[in-house]
Structures are given as C-alpha cells and as structure tokens.
Amino acid sequence: MNAPALSIPQLAPRRRRPLPGFGLSLGLGMAWLGVVVLLPLLALVWQALGLGTAGWLRAIHDPRVQSALKLSFATSLLASLFALMAGALVAWVLVRYRFPGRRLLDALVDLPFALPTAVAGIALTAIYSSNGWIGRIIEPLGLKIAYTWIGIVIALVFIGLPFAVRTVQPVLETLGREQEDAAISLGASRFTTLRRVILPELLPALLTGFSLAFARALGEYGSVIFIAGNKPYSTEIAPLLITIRLEEYDVDGAIAIAALLLAASFACLLLINAIPSLSAYARARRRHA
C-alpha cells in the first residue's frame, strides 16, 4: 500500500506594501512635516516670545494695527457666515437634484482652489469697480463695492465658499432621505424636518466649514489687496500691514501681527478637531433626554 501523502500547509503570500515599514514611514513623514510646517511656525513663536512686554504693547497699541486687525477679523467673520450659508445651499442643490450642467457646477466649486488669488482679486476689481460690469450699474445708486469693506467681504466669500461646500456635501450624500421621509410620514412640517432631522446631522460639518473658511479668510492676501484699496484706518487688512511693516524694517511689529493671526488660526484648528467630540457628546445628551 502506498503511504499517505503528507499535506504541506500553504503559506499565505506576503503582501508587499508600496511604502516602507511604519517606523521609517512615520519618521520620513514627521521629518517633512517638521521642516515644511513646524519649523517655520516654531521660529515665529520663538521670535514672538522674544518681543517682551514692551514690544507687544508697542505693536498692539498702534491705532493702525488695531484698525487692520478689527477689519480683518470682522470681514473674515462676515465672509465666513455668508460662505457657510451659500455653501450649504450649493451643496444641497448638488446632492439632492439632478439637472443639466450639474457636473460643471460641481467642478466650478473648486475653481478658487486652482485660480491664483491675485487673478481672482484683479477679476473682482474689474467687475465691481466704478467702470466695471456691476460697478457702473450700482455705484450711481449710491452703493460702492470696490475699495470698501464690502469688496473685501466679497473677495473672502469667493475664496471661502469651497470649504463650506466640500465639508457639507459628503454629509448630505451619506445622510440620504430616509429620515426625512420618515419625519414627513409622521406629520412633521418642512421646517420641523429641517430643524429636528437635517440640521443636527449637518451641524458638525457646518461648524467645520465655517472654521476652515474663517481661518482661510483671516490670512488671505492676494485676492483682497486689489479690491480693498488698502487705505490706512479704512480698508487696510492685517496681512498687508505685515508686509508694510517688513518694508519699513519694523520686524517686531510684523512678528506681533503675524503671531496674533497664527493664534487665531490655531484656535480654529483646535475647534475643528474638537467638533467630533462635541457632536458625539451632544448626541448622547439627546438620547438620554
């Protein structure tokens, strides 16, 4: 009789990863992150800490600096709110409706990401100036947009709109319409369905989009300087004043303004990272209520 054949276990083929091991990948990634992002930021923080109390007080108590900071924060806040409302509406249309040109509209949302900001600023100025397509119509009515704070807000809405759309759109796609149909079948009105069903699910995405748009608008330079007019104490933004201070060899003043903008952007980043935890806590409270 023939001896039974021994079965040799088949070893699973080892999967080859396109990148090296975890340690090497993490080291390379952190090295690039440190050189490109962290090192310049640490240098700015170190320089800001070296200003001392007298340097900070001299830089912050300057009326021109205070005016520029107030203008930048106020216009960024208004532009982020407008971008959030318009972006949520655009995302709703793109997700819930099918119409000719929908893909083109979806692609145009990302245009501010690809368009150089200086080109956007020149185009907006050409449209809203006194001899532009829109400016020549509305300025005789007493409404001036170019070289005013209104023009700054429009430019910031232009560059902040994609952030609002791209943060809300994926949530709407995963949300579906089942919950809305269930609410309507139970007798809920459209406003009640929006307030009790849709908005609670969209709130984290809305807050994230607002924070991203605000942080982006706060440091915007290229698309604003052309339409703002750059009048001191009137339409001069904080990023432009940083450049002016450097041209005047006032490095301490430029560092102080840049550090304030960095702190505001970092606060927005912390808010964005805290939104998922806050949202989970709010949902748990609603379940137990």
Rank of each mutant, 00 (worst) to 15 (best):
P276S: 14
T125S: 03
G176I: 12
G151N: 10
A238Y: 13
A289N: 07
I150Y: 15
Y233G: 00
A68Q: 15
A120Q: 07
E180N: 14
E236V: 12
F99E: 14
K144D: 06
A74L: 07
L77I: 10
A264G: 01
D252V: 01
Y221D: 00
Y128D: 05
F22V: 14
L71Q: 04
G229R: 13
L104P: 01
P276M: 08
L81E: 01
L42R: 13
Q169E: 14
L175K: 12
Q66C: 11
F73D: 00
S129V: 09
W149L: 07
P204Y: 09
L246P: 00
D181G: 00
A86Y: 09
R177Y: 04
G229E: 09
A264K: 02
Q10D: 05
G87M: 14
E236K: 15
P100Y: 07
Y147P: 09
A59P: 13
V65W: 02
L203P: 09
W92Q: 02
W92G: 02
I244P: 04
V37T: 10
L246H: 03
R58C: 00
L246Q: 14
A155S: 11
A59E: 03
A123D: 07
R195I: 03
T167C: 06
A107I: 08
A258K: 10
I159S: 11
L270G: 07
S7T: 08
I8S: 13
R136C: 12
W32F: 06
P200H: 06
L69K: 06
I137N: 06
I198Y: 00
P204H: 11
R287S: 05
D181N: 08
A289Y: 01
L71K: 04
D106W: 06
A114R: 04
V157M: 08
L212P: 02
I150S: 01
A48Q: 04
V165P: 03
S130M: 14
R166L: 07
L278E: 01
P204W: 06
P204N: 05
R17D: 12
R190L: 02
E180R: 05
R196S: 11
W92E: 03
L39A: 15
Y281Q: 04
S80M: 06
I8Q: 08
I134M: 05
I8L: 13
A88Y: 08
W32A: 13
Q169W: 10
S277T: 14
